[in-house]
Structure formats: structure tokens, C-alpha cells
Design a protein around this nucleic acid. Structure first.
Length: 684
DNA sequence: GAGCACTGC
């Protein structure tokens, strides 16, 4: 790891990547930056010996260190060790390093434990949901998910056991990263001895610095440090003309590489399963026409919906004279790293979910990637040697791309996060020091929803039940449902339903005949009342038959999803015990169960219109039943349903649906405040 | 009669 002062425009080595990133460089270069550290150290008469010491000097001198470095520069593994060796973890304090993903936290911890020469969980450990491999007494370097550290602030608001907190991959701007940064800035005002390291991509470094320096009392709170890593140059190629069909174009490019390019595997970025399958079909059609002497092309799909074993196939080394071509979603951009990739083919699109606070509708649409994303994708070709990235768009369209992807906090339902901030005593949300402020409408709607469900009072303060609900590691509505299960005496079943709705892709659907077979299997669990009870049946069958993976396979269930549901259920059960919520069974009384469901889904009710379409009670939107629902083929006798979620893709779909009686809605007495008139609106 | 990018507590 080499420490360098930050220079605008030096994102990565290699001629072409440099040229391409000049656009990125210019964005950053508009901010005045120089080698501040060097000057500061000189002024204070401090000698700079080594890179490592420079870094340690910076953490001593500045409260917040913004570290810019490419993947592979060792920042995640080395910086915590430097701090540890130089005494930052003495007298019982801990160095934390957060990751946005669980796998990253575990794999990095494993590696660092080996480097330090200790058993994982001793001096070096990790903490993720359901897995705490760390010791309260012995662990000095602790890798964890950002969500876990956020949760810890609810128990220890000053995070007093930590001396240094490193927020890694901060440029990804996960919602927990953003919430944490806001809280950590606040904590540092009360506890200036706490040091912060924010690891970021070049593009975002200045905005992070501005964020931390915006405090008038300490205008030079932070400093940017750049680390040089070992990556290889990636040559960029663009289309001269835009393409109307990037899937077909990707096939063409892959075919061209295979027949004329040197050795090395290919990674193609498309947006979703449907495109991936179309691409695989087109490649399969071409395979018999391969010219003699060219490598045998081995196309492999990669997306989150695949089983674990299908996902693992992309890591297998291709046989001699074979060439892997991995057709992937965005999962390969940051979550999954495959070695040996020499060529990247980038469609330039990604599916992004955006929440509309006015309609409460999430939209999932293919949108152009940001420059940051495009750079990250290209970098996937240069991890082990130099590579080439074929971008399926024109070079001139680069300037129409956004520099970075909008942070998750601007695109998501804030009901649960805002409830959690309230637990931390952050009541005035408009005044909270956000890294990026969420849309005002999102905040208002979240508050409105918290008010209407009794989580906060008219004064905006938490109610006693709100305080408890906030602690549950699950959405507000579902947590609330767990509380009302006491009244309906159905804690046992509601808990299972809560866990099952929290995992996705429970039923494995293949294509063609396999899919039809899976459909038949799924019908075995089907409950008359709808999907929630169907999920309950599936879970109960899973436990009855010994929670086995082979049983799942023969019943078209995802073993991964089911096991996760078991963990979530066990965790939620502990919270239920803590709040004295009884684990009673409804003894097959589905009516009680459904009434309880209504309490959690007051925002999500709809009325039957015609042929698989509904109108939402709120907003009168046209809704289509998702084909995976057991309600897809059936009309609710009462004409009314509640649903777990709605999402707009080509149509607006509702998923996980249960039939209810309309008077249950009234019985529950939920009312919404009309924001314009201040009048209470009935739900009917 | 037709479909869901990716994470996290």
C-alpha cells in the first residue's frame, strides 16, 4: 500500500482508463485541493518518515480521514492493523470497520486474523446479523456490517468502546452508511477523541470532506488521503453509433472477442433475468457456428435469483481451450468478484428501485448507469492483468451520465429509518445533518405513516409502543403486527409470517417444464385465504420435514431462503419474549390471523375490480396481481385484500396477498390525516 | 395467464 497525496484526475493507471476518467477527474478538480497533509505536517514541524507514519499522523491530527483508494490497495485490511499496532486499541478500546455487505465483513476479518496470526474471533473478529464471531474482552479489530453498527448506536449512543471507526465503501451510500455518518458527526462533537475514517471513491471524496468541514467550529476537521493500489490498465472501447438492442449487440461483441481476441474470460453486464436468458439463448444459437480453432464458449448466467450452486459455477476455472462468458446483473459490479476476467461488456444500464413517497409506490426500471458505476464495471477487467471494456454506448453519451448513483436514502421508504432515528433522540429531522438530505416529501410521508399507526404522537415524539417497535429488526408495519398478535392470540403464526415475508424468492421457479412442475409443488402449500397463509404452510412443512435441503429441492422451495426465515424467526422470537408478547397459537383460526395481518398492512389494502386487477384504497391506483401469488387466478369472495408490497415494473404489481373483510379495516379504526385539510380520512 | 436489480437489521 502506497500513500499518495491526492491529485485530481489520477483515478487509475493505464492510458485509456485515464482518458475516460478525465471526465470524472474534472468534476472533482473543480474543488480546490492540494497536499494539505504535507503542508500541515511541515507547519507543525513534524517529520514524515514513511507512508504508514503519514497515515498515522493524519489520524492523530485530524478527526476525520477520507481515504481514497482502489480495490486491491489494501485499505480495508491494512489500515485497521496499522492503528492496532500503533496503540489505537489499547486500554480496552476497539477499532471498528464497517462494510455494506455481510460476505465482505466475514471474508476480510478472516484474512486479517490470518495476517495478525490470531484465531478469528480473538483479537480480530466480525459481527453480522445472526453471527457474532468476536469477543467482548479480546477483540480489538472488529469488522461488521454498517447496519450492525447503526443498531449498536441504539444501545450505546456515543459508541464509547470504539476509538476509531472506519466506514468502508462509503461511496456506495447504503442507507445505513448515510445514517451512520450523520450520527458519527454528531458523536464527534460530544466525543472528539473518536476518530473516523471514511473510505470512498475519488468522485465522492470532496463531498465527504465538505460534509465534515461544514461545521464552523472545526472547518478543517477532515483531510483526504489517496492510496495507490495495484490494478492494471483497462482499455475502453465505445460504439460509434448507439444501438437499439444492447442484448443483441452484447452477443455480437462476445462472439467477436471469442473469435478474434486473446485468452481471458468475459463478463457481460445486463439489467435482469429476462435479458440474461435472452442473451444466453442467442449465444446458444451461435455456438454451433463457431469457427474452427476459436475457444469453446461457455456461457453462464449470474443473478441473485439463482441457487447457490448455480452461482458458484461462475467461479470454476474453464477447461483448456474453453472461455467463460458470464452474463450477469449488477451483482458482479460490487457484490461478487470473479477472477480471470479480461473483457467486460457493459450495456450501460442497471435496474434501479426508486420509492415515490406520494404514491407509496416503488418503481423498478432500467436506467443508465452513473459514471462511477461504469468505471467500477470497467475495473472488473483489470484485476489480474490489463483488460478491455466494451461499452455498448457512444463515447459522447458519457457526458449525459450522472457522476454518481443517487444515494439510497433519497430513493427509499424512510418510515423505519426515521422511527429508529427518533429512538436516538433525533426528533427534528429537517435539522438533522444529512450527508444528502432525503426528499422532504419522503420525510413527511414517513412521519404521517408513523403518526397514523400510533408510533409517534401529534407532538412528533415516540409513543411507548413506538419505542419498542423501533427495536425490532424488521419493517414497522410487521413489527406492529407482532404487537397486535397479543390481542388476537396468534403470536406463533404471525411470527412465522413475519419471518417469511422478510425473505424473498421463497419459491424457486424455473423456466419451461421445470417451472410448471414448481408451480404444482407450490400448490401443495396453497391456502384458500391467500399468500400469507401459504407461506405459513410452507414454513411449517419445512420444519416438519427436518429442514432439509433435499426436501426443499423436491418441493420447489429455496433452501437458502427457508434457512434464513428460520434465523429471522428465531431472532424476532427473542424480541417477542423481551416485550412479553405471548407465543400463542391461533389453533387454525385463520380469521383471527387475518385480522391481525390487517393491523400491519393498513397502508396496503385494495379492492377487487376485474380479472386480476385491483384498485388501491389509498390513491385509487390500478394494481395487478403478481403471477407468483396464489390470488393470481382467484377472485376474493369479499372483494378486499391486503398485500405485502407493490412495485411498478411494466405494470404495477402487488405481491403476497391475503383476502380480508372490509369491516376489519374499520374495526381497526385506522385513519389517515389529509395533509391539505388536516381532516381525518377514513380508509374506505 | 405471466414475472423480480442489489443490499441490510
Amino acid at each position: 500500500m502506497t500513500l499518495q497525496f491526492w491529485k485530481p484526475g489520477t483515478v487509475g493507471p493505464g492510458s485509456n482508463l485515464d482518458r475516460a476518467t478525465e471526465i470524472e477527474g474534472n468534476v472533482v478538480a473543480s474543488a480546490p485541493l492540494s497536499s494539505q497533509i504535507g503542508r500541515q505536517a511541515q507547519r507543525e514541524g513534524l517529520p514524515i518518515f514513511k507512508h504508514r507514519n503519514e497515515l498515522l499522523y493524519c489520524i492523530e491530527r485530524y478527526g476525520v480521514l477520507i481515504v481514497v483508494g482502489q480495490t486491491g490497495c489494501g485499505k480495508t485490511t491494512q489500515i485497521p492493523q496499522y492503528l492496532y499496532e500503533s496503540g489505537w486499541a489499547s486500554s480496552g478500546s476497539v477499532i471498528a470497520c464497517t462494510q455494506p455487505r455481510r460476505v465482505a465483513a466475514t471474508s476480510v476479518a478472516t484474512r486479517v486474523a490470518a495476517e495478525v496470526g490470531c484465531t478469528l474471533g480473538d483479537e480480530v473478529g466480525y459481527t453480522i446479523r445472526f453471527e457474532d464471531v468476536s469477543s467482548k474482552e479480546r477483540t480489538r479489530i472488529r469488522y461488521m456490517t454498517d447496519g450492525m453498527l447503526f443498531r449498536e448506536t441504539m444501545i450505546d449512543p456515543l459508541l464509547s468502546k470504539y476509538s476509531v471507526i472506519m466506514i468502508d465503501e462509503a461511496h456506495e451510500r447504503s442507507i445505513y452508511t448515510d445514517l451512520l455518518l450523520g450520527i458519527l458527526k454528531k458523536i464527534r462533537r460530544k466525543r472528539p477523541s473518536l476518530r473516523l475514517i471514511v473510505s470512498s471513491a475519488t468522485l465522492d471524496a470532496v463531498s465527504f470532506q465538505n460534509y465534515f468541514n461544514s461545521n464552523a467550529a472545526s472547518p478543517d476537521e477532515s483531510v483526504i488521503v489517496s492510496l495507490e493500489g495495484r490494478t492494471f490498465p483497462v482499455e475502453l472501447a465505445y460504439l460509434s453509433e448507439p444501438t437499439p438492442d444492447y442484448v443483441a449487440k452484447a452477443v455480437e461483441v462476445v462472439w467477436g472477442i471469442n473469435n478474434h481476441g486473446g485468452p481471458g474470460d468475459i463478463l457481460v453486464f445486463l439489467t435482469g433475468r429476462e435479458e440474461i436468458e435472452r442473451c444466453l439463448e442467442m449465444l446458444a444459437d451461435l455456438l454451433p457456428r463457431a469457427p474452427r480453432g476459436s475457444p469453446v464458449l461457455v456461457p453462464l448466467p449470474l443473478h441473485a435469483g439463482l441457487s447457490t450452486e448455480a452461482q458458484l459455477r461462475v467461479f470454476e476455472t474453464a477447461e483448456p481451450r474453453h472461455r467463460k462468458v458470464i452474463i450477469s446483473t449488477n451483482i458482479a459490479e460490487a457484490s461478487v468478484t470473479i477472477n480471470g476476467i479480461k473483457y467486460v461488456v457493459d450495456s450501460g444500464f442497471v435496474k434501479m428501485r426508486t420509492f415515490n413517497p406520494t404514491t407509496l409506490l416503488s418503481t423498478l426500471t432500467a436506467t443508465p448507469v452513473s459514471i462511477a458505476s461504469a468505471t467500477q464495471r470497467a475495473g472488473r477487467a483489470g484485476r489480474t492483468s490489463s483488460g478491455i471494456c466494451y461499452r455498448l454506448y457512444t463515447q459522447s453519451s458519457l457526458k449525459t451520465l450522472a457522476p454518481t448513483t443517487p444515494p439510497e436514502i433519497t430513493r427509499t421508504d424512510l418510515t423505519t429509518p426515521i422511527l429508529q432515528l427518533k429512538v436516538l433522540g433525533i426528533d427534528d429531522l429537517m435539522k438533522f445533518d444529512w450527508v444528502t438530505g432525503p426528499p422532504a416529501e419522503s420525510v413527511l410521508r414517513a412521519l404521517e405513516s408513523l403518526l397514523s399507526t400510533g408510533m409517534i404522537g401529534q407532538d412528533g415524539r415516540l409513543t411507548p409502543v413506538g419505542e419498542k417497535v423501533a427495536e425490532f429488526p424488521i419493517e414497522v408495519g410487521i413489527a406492529r403486527m407482532l404487537f397486535t398478535s397479543k390481542d388476537y392470540k396468534c403470536g406463533e403464526e404471525i411470527l412465522t409470517i413475519a419471518a417469511m415475508t422478510a425473505v424473498q424468492d421463497v419459491f424457486v421457479i424455473g423456466d419451461g417444464a421445470q417451472g410448471a412442475l414448481a408451480e404444482l409443488e407450490r400448490r401443495k402449500f396453497t391456502a384458500e385465504e391467500g399468500d400469507h397463509l401459504t407461506l405459513l404452510n410452507a414454513y411449517n412443512a419445512f420444519t416438519r420435514y427436518g429442514k432439509s435441503s433435499s426436501w426443499c429441492k423436491s418441493h420447489a422451495l429455496s433452501f437458502r431462503a427457508m434457512s434464513r426465515a428460520v434465523s429471522i424467526r428465531a431472532q424476532l422470537k427473542k424480541y417477542m419474549a423481551r416485550f412479553n408478547l405471548p407465543m400463542e397459537s391461533c389453533q387454525g383460526d385463520a380469521k383471527r390471523l387475518r385480522k391481525c395481518l390487517v393491523s400491519g398492512y393498513v397502508r396496503n389494502c385494495a379492492r377487487w375490480m376485474a380479472e386480476g386487477t385491483y384498485r388501491s384504497v389509498r390513491g385509487n391506483m390500478l394494481l395487478h396481481v403478481h403471477p407468483t401469488s396464489v390470488m393470481f387466478t382467484r377472485k376474493p369472495r369479499s372483494g378486499w385484500v391486503i398485500f405485502h408490497e407493490m412495485e411498478e415494473t411494466k405494470k404495477t404489481h402487488i405481491r403476497i396477498i391475503t383476502e380480508i373483510e372490509p369491516d376489519w379495516l374499520l374495526e381497526y379504526g385506522h385513519k389517515y390525516l389529509d395533509r391539505r385539510t388536516g381532516q381525518e380520512m377514513s380508509t374506505t
